[in-house]
């Protein structure tokens, strides 16, 4: 029992259809794929990046699975550790990234599709780069 400290650790057996209707597909996946195509067209034409918030869509688990299948898996996977992991993977369509932000307990706090050449979270911020330079210089001076 010691390690049964999270809701997900409690075994649940579901007979028949899940009682919450989560298996019903509401047709959201196709609509979102269409929106992705619009964003991708903008990226191609003007270089403008975009994002689609998946969390605020009324999607069932089945919808999400259908979307995942429609977009597929690409070449890149990355994990960013910022107060819990953020998992990023490129879908089968280059420039379309599936991003899952989790908190320290690994619960999803935000989930989005980002349509960009590189997801914003991956690039180092100007302020951080400057701070890094200062730290490196300080280190060199200490050693020198």
């Amino acid at each position: 029992m010691a390690d049964m400290n999270r809701l997900a650790d409690i075994p649940v057996r579901v007979e028949g259809d899940a009682p919450d209707g989560a298996q019903a597909e509401g047709g959201m996946a196709e609509a979102i794929v269409g929106e992705v195509a619009q964003h991708l067209a903008r990226l191609v034409e003007s270089g403008e990046a975009g994002a689609i918030d998946l969390q605020s869509m009324p999607m069932t688990e089945a919808d999400k699975a259908a979307l995942r299948e429609a977009l597929g898996e690409g070449e890149v996977e990355a994990t960013v550790q910022v107060i819990g992991p953020t998992r990023i993977h490129e879908t089968g369509y280059p420039g379309v990234w599936w991003i899952q932000h989790m908190n320290a307990e690994e619960h999803v706090v935000a989930e989005q599709l980002e349509i960009a050449r590189v997801p914003g979270l991956l690039s180092a911020h100007e302020a951080d780069v400057r701070a890094a330079l200062q730290r490196l210089r300080a280190r060199t001076q200490d050693e020198g």
Partner: peptide, 20 residues
């Protein structure tokens, strides 16, 4: 890092249904 702010604000924007 500044990524902390970006992640926090992404979560807040998502919950507020603001454009990502």
């Amino acid at each position: 890092s500044r990524r902390t702010f970006l992640k926090f604000c992404t979560a807040v924007a998502s919950s507020m249904a603001l454009p990502p």
